[in-house]
């Protein structure tokens, strides 16, 4: 491309001088330098990306305790606001259902009274039934159910990483 501008050499570059007898060529010095420098610049760059992934999180643990089973009235749906989940207590036993919409993680609304009660997500209007199934709206899949266990002190215990099917009941 230099041809476009014609020959505009005011002085010979370092290259002309470099033709003197040299034990190590200019090219190999530059290649070593560039490769090593790139390693020592890209390496820390990648390390800095690793740095952005914390090893310890200051979040609420995924396993936590709820109230005692007796504190949930029979045939009721209780909303645990802090934990963002519903606790169903019906004739088959206890179930814990996530109240986090599967669309974009808003908290879905409360269930109304009656048999065919539904829960609506306030953000984009997804509608869920008591089995967590999507009735309408943009939500891509049903709400999750979590495994319920009993803690040594007699309270219900949930691990939100332990997802179970909707017909899995915990019996006291």
């Amino acid at each position: 491309m230099s041809k476009d501008y014609g020959d505009y050499q005011l002085e010979e570059g370092g290259r002309g001088e470099a033709k003197e007898k040299e034990s190590v060529s200019r090219r190999s010095l530059l290649s070593i330098g560039w490769i090593a420098s790139l390693v020592s610049l890209i390496g820390p760059g990648l390390a800095n990306i690793r740095y952005l992934f914390p090893n310890v999180l200051y979040e609420t643990p995924t396993a936590f305790k709820l109230r005692k089973p007796a504190e949930y009235p029979p045939n009721s749906i209780s909303f645990e606001e802090d934990r963002r989940l519903f606790v169903f207590n019906d004739r088959h036993g206890f179930r814990a259902m996530s109240a986090v919409c599967t669309h974009l993680r808003c908290t879905v609304g409360p269930f109304g009274p009656g048999k065919g009660a539904t829960s609506r997500c306030p953000c984009h209007g997804s509608l869920f039934d008591k089995q967590g199934r999507v009735l309408s709206g943009p939500a891509p899949r049903s709400l999750d159910f979590f495994r319920l266990t009993e803690s040594p002190d007699g309270r219900l215990q949930v691990d939100t990483q332990d997802i179970v099917s909707a017909d899995m009941y915990f019996k006291v």
Binding site: M1, S2, D4, Y5, D7, Y8, L10, E11, G13
Partner: peptide, 21 residues
Amino acid sequence: IVSTRVWRSIIRHGNPDNDLD
């Protein structure tokens, strides 16, 4: 690549092997 219109719009000069470049 260096002769494409896109490249030459980014790097406006040729390979710096002469004083003008």
